[in-house]
Write a protein that binds this DNA or RNA. Structure first.
Lengths: 346, 346
DNA sequence: TTGTATGCGTTATCAA
DNA sequence: TTGATAACGCATACAA
């Protein structure tokens, strides 16, 4: 447990002032090049490490970004986080990550912790029951940038990074219609959240455009869990006229549902064609392969982190950009392909 | 962007000394209860938040735990992280998370960042090509606790948290043997890593005990990716005598392999029985359901974080405990069940 | 039970 | 190009 080396120690050994050492270490333009290398070498030799607290205390910034997500243990979110970590790391920002577990109460507590940790900026995807952004007012008041991604609420002074969920929902539904589906059941999550409300809107629009029937019986709002996937089959069996198409807003839920459908004697895609959402790894494993909307998670994480860092460096003004829209893509696999006889299973 | 409130501001308003305010805020025993509530209320009223940097600078600790994992975007790792976050949050520790992307070079860089961030302790799962713990020497020297989990290297002064991978490998293999398999192919990852080396050892032991043939032809070291799962089928088709059992050290790889096997006309489990590892969500979705070793990820994360925090609080001495072994469990599903006719698919 | 005084390690301002 | 000095906000040893 050796003593910690400070710039004073370096200064003493080099017969310089601490101020000069500090400037040399920070590559200050007004410092002689020779002095810089001298200091750098000495620092290395003595095993110096800068004290970020002292530095942060002085500079009033932390080089830390806070991240609040609904759940850490989701395939989609882990790709997003992976992208964020990559970008943050490259710009030598640290990431403090916490999860709301889909509860606004915990989200509020997490926001407070982040505030007390004095993060330079915040990246947030909202819990399923969050109604407003009041708990981030402390951030807004202090001018700490907040970027919402995936699950967002539109608000001034706050970038949203999303895909066009309505268009994605529309694309998915149109695809089913093109495969000959006439009666399409849509299963979605909490309609408080843009991601689900927008997909539903897209679905309805597509039906409307093609003069197809929708209505309450064909719209199910669930938690999109494994169990919901299984329950769905019972619901389908209970229907007077079962659907011939299924658009489920989560791949994992869709995959369990397909498994259960097959066990109940339904044939996929012949009896019921299925489209999921997210392009979760599971969609490649299920048989038949799951048609889905590819969601660029890694990219979304990278762009969110990069936008925040750019803003912090004054390279991007939040007020000029308000929403960043990422491209999604329909990935057609076996679970929905009726027109072409041979599936494109991987 | 209002001015930041400090304990001095509170002290002035209350006509107390900053020291008293500081102590009151920290619930110091020597402070009058009335004073405490007085200070607490005033702090709340004025919108005070403590400055962690000033505090850390004084106390020489950070209330921050560093986490280095191979990949963020894995189902298993995200459950581990979820457990860690839960425990850390409850004890008001922050988590700084970074990924090595399976590269020892990046792991070294991450370790340095963590060191400079002055984390109070470190939770690490090693990259696939890490040979030793030299890059953590700076931590050892300063007495900063390091806990390795899942992918570990045994070392003095450093807790390992693992499951008994050898026993798990043994259990998986024995199960296949009990299902009548005589020729079992084992597919695993980098043998530098305990998790894979131990599983292989367990596999070999089980074969040995039952007088079954093993050998190089039946041991494949891969990266356990999706592609490896697909390639495996080609390998199997190229074998003079194909295996009748498959023990794959990763569920996702096993699942893709099953899909490919079925497409190549193999029947699972009749022709080839398959056992995976991890109890990844995918194992419930694949048809037939994947027999696997349940790996307690969430629990591992919780225990790792809790052990570290206990140590930091002086409640647990690292030297007394060296390895914490978590229970695994064989979960039997359809992919391996030959003896019982009806599968236990969910 | 409370107050005084000091230092934690940096960086920014001003001066040289 | 470098140096002296004063904060940054807090927690503690010592005094009272």
């Amino acid at each position: 447990m050796q003593k910690e080396i400070t710039i004073y120690d370096i200064a003493k050994q080099l017969e310089l002032s601490p101020a000069t050492v500090s400037r040399a270490l920070n590559d200050h333009p007004a410092i002689n090049q020779n002095t810089k290398t001298l200091v750098a070498n000495k620092a290395m030799e003595m095993g110096y490490r800068s004290n970020m607290f002292a530095s942060n205390l002085r500079r009033q910034r932390t080089k830390t970004i806070g991240v609040i997500v609904p759940r850490l243990d989701s395939a989609f979110m882990s790709t997003v986080l992976s992208g964020m970590e990559k970008v943050a790391n490259e710009s030598s920002y640290n990431l403090i990550i916490s999860q709301s577990l889909e509860s606004v109460t915990k989200e509020i507590a997490n926001a407070k912790t982040m505030f007390d940790s004095r993060v330079d900026g915040l990246l947030v995807s909202l819990a399923s029951d969050t109604d407003n952004l009041d708990h981030f007012n402390t951030f807004f008041r202090k001018g700490i940038p907040l970027i919402l991604f995936d699950r967002v609420i539109a608000q001034k002074n706050c970038i949203n990074i999303v895909i066009d969920n309505q268009k994605a929902g529309y694309d998915a539904t149109i695809h089913l219609i093109n495969q000959g589906c006439k009666r399409i059941l849509h299963v979605t999550g909490s309609l408080k959240r843009n991601v689900y409300a927008d997909r539903l809107r897209g679905y309805k629009l597509a039906l409307l455009e093609h003069g197809l029937t929708g209505g309450a019986e064909l719209e199910r709002s669930t938690n999109l869990t494994r169990q919901d996937g299984l329950d769905l089959v019972n619901y389908i069996k209970s229907m007077a006229i079962p659907p011939d198409g299924l658009f489920i807003a989560s791949d994992f839920c869709a995959a369990t549902c397909i498994t259960a459908l097959k066990q109940s004697g339904f044939s996929v895609p012949t009896d019921i064609a299925v489209v999921g959402f997210n392009d979760d790894p599971v969609s490649l494993v299920i048989d038949p392969g799951l048609t889905t909307i590819h969601y660029p998670g890694q990219e979304m994480g990278e762009i969110a982190a990069q936008s925040l860092i750019n803003h912090l460096n004054g390279l991007l003004r939040l007020s000029t950009t308000n929403t960043i829209l990422l491209n999604h893509e329909l990935v057609v696999r076996g679970s929905s392909q009726r027109v072409v006889s041979q599936s494109t299973l991987p």
